[in-house]
Amino acid sequence: MLEIRFHGRGGQGTVLAAKILADAVLRQGGKQCLAIPEFGVERRGAPVTAYARVSDRPILERTRIHAPDALVVFDPTLYASDILTGLKPGGTVLTNGAEADAARLSERAPGFRFLAVPAGAIALELKLGSASSPIVNTAMCGAAAAVFGLSGLEALLECVREAVPVKAEANVEAARRAYAAAREALHAPA
């Protein structure tokens, strides 16, 4: 079973991202997925946590994930708090940022594998959200689908198109670009 924890901020669409990925896993077929949002009071800008379990077998565990295999970090300012807590040794961190950010994070927290995808930049290029708060969730979905092998590109893009209420094509394009960027980051020499 693959256990992923998502860290974002209220308003970034973290919970919708977890739902889109669950959709994509179902559409791809063959695996089970359970997406769980953090149990709390949602406020714009406040740290938000969500969880996803992906498995070949039916998923029974309906709890928070305390020792995730991987993290997906929507907002790099969240590294100021202890979001790496519990991450398994050697665990993957998919982070919204540039390649240099991944290198800096690797130095700060050796023992984990940091992969950066410029989701914020992609969102701004496509006019998703504003410069101060780009809407990065669909880009992060694309990146996560690629990094964790959750679904193929086509299945993911269909799920994004169905799930987003506005700017469907821009969001689909964000997911597509981030999917490609993540595959590149994944196959780049360490």
Partner: peptide, 12 residues
Amino acid sequence: LDGFTLSHSYEP
């Protein structure tokens, strides 16, 4: 049903 644990969790 359990609040959040089921009410807000997504599965097939």
